[in-house]
């Protein structure tokens, strides 16, 4: 388990990194935190001719409070986001979700840009970006463009990134004050990739009704899934057990899961409904649920 021969270039700027990728015509690979890529190199499942290391790019290591959204540079470590008070206030779903990413040691190195570009359908960050309608900022030879999460994630480990583009930042809309968030993740062991995970951010109205809900699912499709029908069903409703159950069924209905050794498609669909219900129950305060029940 040793990587195949490769060349290595430590990028001095985003433009430099893009230039190297362009010169290598699709055989280059971007190295960010390396937590997914280096094991793939060691197994020789990935054999790029050149690695472009973004590790030296301080310019991609920032968290910025913008109006209406937070911008996170691609090289920000997952752990940094997880413990950022700015993020906790502005996008409370993000730290709750990132705590499920591997272990602290992994999050110390793994970057938000790397996880986004890797696009593992079982990963937490892509699902959160999808739930919150975040934008992915990418830079290529002809400059930067912004891609909505819905369009960015295209399939299993497949994104809208061109071979000579890199993810440079995430723009995550701020959640309304008082937004309630929850994550229900089913993994066989703590820290494993989710078999299924459900992410919810819910805004309550003045009388305790659900004003708006955002729900996404990881692990139940080739891409992170947004449960739009469930969100519509919930909007304006009191969070009664029957409503939550119906919404959970809609969440499961939005998925197109697959078989693997950890669970069949059928199993994934079943537990998606269970996790979605539990996730909504967790997000909504008990008192309001019981008073609504």
């Amino acid at each position: 388990m040793k990587p195949a021969p490769l060349d290595y270039i430590r990028a001095t700027s985003v433009a430099h990194a893009v230039q190297v990728l362009a010169e290598n015509d699709g055989d280059g690979k971007v190295l960010a935190g390396g937590q997914s890529l280096v094991p793939l190199l060691a197994m020789r499942l990935s054999q790029p001719t050149v690695l472009v290391d973004l590790g030296g790019l301080g310019e991609l290591s920032y968290i910025r409070d913008e109006s209406g959204h937070v911008e996170i540079g691609a090289m920000v470590r997952a752990r940094t986001v997880e413990i950022s008070s700015l993020i906790a206030d502005a996008v409370p779903l993000l730290p709750v979700a990132l705590r499920h990413v591997g272990h602290v040691t992994i999050r110390n190195r793994g970057t938000v840009g790397g996880s986004t570009a890797h696009a593992d359908p079982a990963a937490e960050l892509p699902a959160v970006l999808r739930a919150l309608d975040a934008d992915v900022v990418v830079t290529g030879p002809s400059g930067s463009r912004t891609i909505g999460a819905a369009d960015f994630f295209q399939g299993f480990l497949t994104t809208a990134l061109a071979p000579d583009e890199i993810v440079t930042a995430l723009r995550v809309p701020k959640s309304a004050p008082g937004t309630r968030v929850a994550v229900q993740e089913f993994a066989r062991r703590h820290g494993d990739f989710a078999i299924v995970a459900v992410f919810a951010a819910v805004e309550l109205g003045a009388s305790g009704e659900i004003a708006a809900a955002r729900i996404a699912v990881a692990g139940a499709d080739q891409v992170p899934v947004r449960a739009a029908a469930a969100e519509e069903l919930l909007a304006g409703q009191d969070p009664s057990p029957a409503v939550l159950r119906a919404a959970a069924a809609e969440v499961a209905g939005a998925t197109r899961p697959f078989d693997d050794i950890h669970g069949t498609a059928d199993y994934r669909k079943k537990i998606t409904a269970v996790l979605a219900r539990r996730c909504l129950e967790q997000a909504l305060p008990t008192a309001e649920r019981s008073s609504a029940a």
Binding site: R188, R189, H190, G191, I261, H262
Partner: peptide, 28 residues
């Protein structure tokens, strides 16, 4: 509860990493 070496129908082993062969951790 956790550990199983699984083979596909063609005799290919499907559990050849610690991500797939599940040794319980302190949390389990």
């Amino acid at each position: 509860l956790f550990e199983e070496i699984v083979y596909g129908p063609d005799g290919q082993p499907l559990t050849t990493t610690f991500m797939d062969y599940l040794i319980p951790t302190a949390s389990e």
